[in-house]
């Protein structure tokens, strides 16, 4: 009798674990499909971003908003950081030490030629 009960429980357990396994496999399959779909959406979004960032789109928009390419750029050499070429303004016009020029305003420092 005990053997029968053990066998019954074992069979029930086997059937249950098999069902659970199948359910997990199904779920995994669904996740894989969802990942694939998300991948496709991601690709589409990356493409969309690239299109939006493309100069072909941005430049006419910028022009339409009245933005222009500066006629004349005035590079400024920060003394001690880069050697000032002929005709280029020196950092003394800033009247601040080099260390301060590079740390006080990172944006300004980043825009210096040669950086």
């Amino acid at each position: 009798m005990a053997l029968v009960i053990v066998l019954a429980v074992a069979m029930f357990g086997l059937a249950f674990s098999r069902t659970a396994l199948d359910r997990s496999a199904l779920e995994l399959s669904r996740f894989e499909s969802a990942i694939a779909e998300a991948g496709v959406v991601n690709e589409q979004l990356e493409l969309e971003v690239a299109r939006k960032e493309s100069p072909v789109r941005v430049a006419p928009l910028a022009k339409g908003l009245g933005l222009v390419i500066p006629d004349e750029r005035r590079p400024i050499a920060v003394e001690g950081v880069v050697e000032a070429p002929r005709g280029v303004e020196r950092a003394s016009t800033f009247d601040i030490p080099v260390e301060d020029a590079t740390t006080a305003d990172p944006q300004l420092a980043a825009s210096q030629p040669g950086d």
Binding site: P75, G87, V88
Partner: peptide
């Protein structure tokens, strides 16, 4: 020259 970050020389 500007895109490649070449330092002006004149």
């Amino acid at each position: 020259l500007h895109r490649m970050g070449v330092t002006p020389d004149a």
